[in-house]
Simulated assay, not measured.
Amino acid sequence: MALATDRSTQPLPLSFDDFLAHYGDDARYELIDGELFDLEPTGPHEEVAAVIARWLNYEIIQQGFDYFIPHRCLIKPLATGTGFRPDVIVLNRSALPQEPLWASQPVVTLGSTIKFVAEVVSSNWQNDYARKFEDYALLGIPEYWIADYQGLGGEFFIGRPKQPTLTVCVLNEEGRYERQILRGDQPIVSAVFPKLTLTAEAVLGAGR
């Protein structure tokens, strides 16, 4: 596995196969349009992701869903040279036989396999609020959370003054995300996990 310092030695743009070969096992990086992005994970960042995963795992067990949260997973959308690495992803186990790469690598390509994704925002917030917002909708992923525990997103997305915000995006019948902007003790209404009892602060507060 290539070290971060090897980034300058990699031909640009990177193909998905090259990215997989050099960075596939490195949770720090993802690929967007051939460009390598450092996800900048910190301790608080990982705490927020862990809280989301813990609550969703509980719901999966309690409700008896045939879902699971993989430890490592890449999403390969239709775009050439792109491999998203979500902070939390929930997969439908029964859909995996249709995935062409899954048997040999933890890579999913079909939106029908993915029930839920969450991204914990870092300084590359534009990718979470814009690029992934569009691509995850195009894939048909039913639910997408953007956990901005530091309030880093642009004012267009989280308002002014900036403050910690959880954006819950649920796919509508037209294949577009409808957004809920949540803060503090506002309850989260999940389409995929309808019995979930969780507030925005329970998620965002894990990073503070």
Score class of each variant (00 low, 15 high):
residue 3 L to D: 14
residue 5 T to C: 04
residue 5 T to Y: 10
residue 9 T to R: 13
residue 9 T to M: 07
residue 9 T to C: 03
residue 10 Q to H: 08
residue 11 P to V: 11
residue 12 L to D: 09
residue 13 P to V: 08
residue 17 D to V: 08
residue 23 Y to E: 02
residue 24 G to Y: 06
residue 31 L to D: 08
residue 36 L to Q: 03
residue 37 F to A: 04
residue 38 D to L: 10
residue 39 L to T: 11
residue 39 L to D: 07
residue 40 E to T: 14
residue 42 T to G: 06
residue 46 E to K: 05
residue 46 E to V: 05
residue 46 E to Y: 02
residue 49 A to V: 09
residue 51 V to H: 02
residue 52 I to M: 03
residue 54 R to H: 12
residue 58 Y to I: 12
residue 64 G to K: 12
residue 66 D to S: 13
residue 68 F to H: 14
residue 70 P to R: 10
residue 72 R to C: 10
residue 72 R to Q: 15
residue 73 C to S: 08
residue 73 C to A: 11
residue 79 A to Y: 10
residue 85 R to Y: 08
residue 86 P to N: 09
residue 88 V to G: 04
residue 89 I to N: 00
residue 89 I to D: 01
residue 91 L to G: 03
residue 92 N to Y: 07
residue 92 N to D: 15
residue 93 R to T: 13
residue 94 S to Q: 15
residue 101 L to I: 04
residue 105 Q to T: 13
residue 111 G to Q: 10
residue 112 S to D: 12
residue 114 I to R: 00
residue 114 I to A: 02
residue 119 E to P: 04
residue 119 E to R: 08
residue 124 N to F: 01
residue 130 A to L: 15
residue 131 R to S: 12
residue 132 K to A: 05
residue 133 F to V: 02
residue 137 A to K: 05
residue 137 A to E: 06
residue 140 G to R: 06
residue 141 I to P: 01
residue 143 E to A: 05
residue 149 Y to N: 04
residue 150 Q to L: 15
residue 150 Q to E: 15
residue 151 G to D: 09
residue 152 L to P: 04
residue 153 G to I: 05
residue 155 E to S: 14
residue 155 E to H: 07
residue 160 R to T: 15
residue 165 T to I: 09
residue 170 V to H: 08
residue 174 E to P: 00
residue 180 Q to D: 14
residue 184 G to Y: 08
residue 185 D to Y: 03
residue 187 P to S: 09
residue 189 V to Y: 09
residue 192 V to M: 06
residue 193 F to G: 01
residue 199 T to Q: 02
residue 201 E to N: 13
residue 205 G to L: 00
residue 206 A to C: 08
residue 207 G to A: 03
residue 208 R to A: 07
